[in-house]
Simulated assay, not measured.
Amino acid sequence: MSLPVTAPTIRPARPGDVPAIVAMVHELADYEKAADRCGLTPAQLDTALFGPAPALFGHVAVDDADRPVGFALWFLNFSTWAGVHGIYLEDLYVRPAYRGTGAGRALLATLAGICVERGYRRLEWWMLDWNPAARFYASIGAEPMTEWVPYRLDGAALHDLAAEGVTSATRPSARPGRVPDRGDEA
């Protein structure tokens, strides 16, 4: 298979891109051997990206016909030590026919540019330990954070712990718009 003639262009995701992004998320889940665990719908992604209070952002790599062939979905995190936001890259995916065209690098360069422009100090992501993209990430200067171990609380364990919490009706009210946090009282 030959590579496309021109490298894809990077632009912010638009509402019309949602079906293609969702399809690629499902392709990514299949690649990661977890297709049965991916339930993302177009309605969910549309709300997350374009709803009244979006907390998820996206960029797409598009071909000459403006069709998405890759994407990066990301959100802001915050470093309490640095005192500034950063970008957490939730997913990066480029369709197989467009790998090697520079689309992945261009998506990451776009996010790095947002970090620099806005004064963010970090661009971070997780990757499965068997993913061959590790070589690519190393080639752009990304380093694995071997001393940090990710943790996840979900499913029954998440619900069990939540049941131990104080209900919002008995919590003292914080300033409007802020979700009260029991960590403030601990």
Rank of each mutant, 00 (worst) to 15 (best):
M1H: 00
S2E: 01
T6N: 00
R11L: 06
A13I: 14
P15N: 12
G16N: 07
V18S: 02
V25E: 13
E27M: 08
D30A: 12
D30W: 04
K33H: 12
A35M: 10
G39N: 14
G39Q: 15
G39F: 15
L40A: 14
L40Q: 02
P42S: 01
Q44M: 15
D46Q: 11
A53T: 13
G58I: 11
D63M: 03
R67V: 13
P68M: 07
V69S: 08
G70R: 00
G70C: 10
G70I: 06
A72I: 11
W74M: 08
W74I: 07
W74T: 00
F75H: 15
N77P: 05
N77A: 13
N77F: 09
S79Q: 11
W81C: 05
V84F: 01
G86D: 07
G86T: 07
I87M: 05
I87L: 14
Y88P: 07
L89D: 03
D91L: 08
D91C: 10
L92R: 09
P96M: 07
Y98P: 00
T101L: 07
T101N: 01
T101Q: 01
T101H: 00
G102D: 13
G102Y: 13
R105M: 14
R105C: 12
L107Y: 11
L107T: 02
L108E: 10
L108A: 14
L111M: 15
V116N: 10
V116H: 13
E117M: 12
G119W: 13
R121P: 02
R122N: 04
W126R: 11
M127K: 00
W130L: 09
N131Y: 11
N131I: 13
P132Y: 00
P132K: 05
F136R: 11
S139D: 10
S139A: 15
G141H: 15
E143R: 02
M145L: 03
T146M: 07
G155H: 00
A156K: 02
L158T: 05
H159V: 00
A163Y: 00
A163K: 01
E164L: 15
G165S: 02
T167I: 09
S168R: 11
T170N: 12
S173W: 02
P176F: 04
P180T: 03
R182L: 14
G183R: 06
E185Y: 10
E185R: 08
E185K: 03
